[in-house]
Amino acid sequence: DVEPGKFYKGVVTRIEKYGASINLNEQVRGLLRPRDMISLRLENLNVGDEIIVQAIDVRPEKREIDFKYIP
């Protein structure tokens, strides 16, 4: 289970102007929005990149997770 405040290694699977889709595994994925990137710009991400993200909002009833990137 993903817990708010914990850090996870994820893989960038899609990049859109509203954010990047991050997969932690086949069943768990979430969104990294541009506003939640401290020192990383969306255009510097590539599909397949592995990054460390922090879960900031977990809504299991909607199967949604928001991530934050902290270098």
Rank of each mutant, 00 (worst) to 15 (best):
V2T: 03
V2G: 04
V2Y: 10
V2S: 02
V2W: 06
E3Y: 12
E3A: 10
E3Q: 14
E3H: 13
P4T: 12
P4S: 10
P4L: 14
P4N: 10
P4G: 05
P4K: 14
G5Q: 04
G5D: 05
G5N: 07
G5T: 02
G5K: 04
G5A: 03
K6E: 07
K6L: 09
K6I: 06
K6V: 08
F7V: 05
F7P: 04
F7T: 04
F7G: 01
Y8Q: 00
Y8R: 00
Y8D: 00
Y8L: 03
K9H: 09
K9Y: 08
K9Q: 07
G10A: 10
G10Q: 01
V11K: 09
V11W: 12
V11N: 02
V11G: 00
V12E: 00
V12F: 02
V12T: 02
V12I: 12
T13V: 11
T13L: 05
T13C: 09
T13P: 00
T13W: 06
T13K: 04
R14D: 05
R14P: 00
R14E: 07
R14I: 07
R14F: 09
R14G: 10
I15A: 01
I15L: 07
I15N: 03
I15F: 03
I15E: 00
I15C: 06
E16M: 14
E16S: 15
E16Q: 12
K17G: 08
K17T: 12
K17H: 13
K17I: 14
K17F: 11
Y18T: 11
Y18W: 15
Y18E: 13
Y18R: 12
Y18A: 11
Y18P: 01
G19Q: 03
G19S: 05
G19D: 06
G19M: 05
A20D: 02
A20K: 01
A20F: 07
S21C: 15
S21E: 14
S21M: 15
I22H: 02
I22R: 00
N23K: 15
N23Y: 14
N23F: 12
N23R: 14
N23V: 13
N23D: 12
N23E: 15
N23M: 15
N23P: 01
L24S: 01
L24I: 14
L24F: 04
L24H: 01
L24N: 02
N25F: 08
N25H: 07
N25P: 03
N25T: 12
N25D: 10
N25C: 10
N25R: 06
E26I: 12
E26W: 12
E26L: 10
E26T: 11
Q27V: 13
Q27C: 14
Q27E: 13
Q27T: 14
Q27R: 13
Q27F: 15
Q27Y: 14
Q27H: 15
V28N: 06
V28L: 13
V28P: 01
R29C: 14
R29K: 13
R29H: 13
R29P: 03
R29G: 14
R29M: 15
R29Q: 15
R29S: 15
G30A: 04
G30V: 07
G30S: 01
G30I: 09
G30K: 01
G30F: 09
G30Y: 04
L31H: 05
L31F: 12
L31Y: 08
L31T: 11
L31E: 05
L31R: 04
L31Q: 06
L31W: 14
L32F: 04
L32I: 05
L32P: 01
L32N: 01
L32E: 02
R33V: 04
R33Q: 05
R33D: 04
R33I: 06
P34H: 07
P34W: 11
P34L: 09
P34V: 10
P34Y: 08
P34R: 09
P34N: 06
R35E: 13
R35K: 14
R35T: 10
R35M: 10
D36V: 05
D36K: 03
D36F: 07
D36I: 05
M37D: 06
M37Q: 04
M37Y: 03
M37R: 01
I38K: 08
I38N: 10
I38C: 12
I38Y: 11
I38L: 10
I38F: 09
S39V: 11
S39G: 15
S39D: 14
S39A: 12
L40E: 05
L40H: 05
L40A: 06
R41C: 10
R41F: 08
R41M: 09
R41H: 09
R41Y: 09
L42I: 10
L42N: 01
L42C: 06
L42R: 02
L42S: 02
E43Q: 10
E43K: 09
E43M: 07
E43C: 12
N44D: 15
N44C: 14
N44M: 13
N44W: 13
N44L: 10
N44S: 12
L45H: 01
L45Y: 01
N46E: 11
N46V: 11
N46F: 11
N46A: 14
N46S: 15
N46T: 14
N46I: 09
V47N: 02
V47F: 01
V47W: 02
G48F: 04
G48L: 03
G48M: 03
G48I: 01
G48D: 05
G48C: 07
D49V: 06
D49S: 04
D49H: 03
E50I: 15
E50T: 14
E50M: 13
E50V: 15
E50F: 15
E50P: 08
E50Q: 11
I51R: 00
I51L: 09
I51H: 00
I51D: 00
I52R: 06
I52A: 03
I52T: 10
I52C: 15
V53I: 08
V53D: 00
V53M: 05
V53S: 00
V53W: 01
V53F: 04
Q54P: 00
Q54V: 12
Q54F: 14
Q54G: 02
A55W: 04
A55Q: 03
A55P: 03
A55V: 15
I56E: 01
I56N: 03
I56G: 05
I56Y: 13
I56P: 01
I56W: 08
I56K: 11
I56C: 08
I56D: 01
I56L: 12
D57N: 15
D57K: 15
D57P: 03
D57G: 15
D57F: 14
V58L: 05
V58R: 04
V58S: 05
V58E: 03
R59Y: 07
R59M: 04
R59D: 10
R59F: 06
R59Q: 06
R59W: 07
P60Y: 12
P60F: 09
P60C: 09
P60V: 13
P60D: 11
P60E: 08
E61A: 11
E61D: 13
E61L: 09
E61F: 08
E61G: 13
K62R: 12
K62P: 06
K62C: 11
K62E: 11
R63M: 14
R63D: 14
R63Q: 14
E64L: 10
I65L: 08
I65N: 02
I65K: 03
I65Q: 03
I65H: 04
I65E: 02
I65W: 12
I65G: 02
I65T: 04
I65M: 05
D66V: 12
D66M: 13
D66A: 11
D66W: 14
D66C: 10
D66G: 09
F67K: 03
K68S: 11
K68C: 10
K68H: 06
K68I: 08
K68G: 13
Y69C: 07
Y69E: 05
Y69T: 02
Y69Q: 08
Y69R: 01
Y69N: 03
I70A: 10
I70T: 11
I70E: 10
P71D: 08
P71C: 15
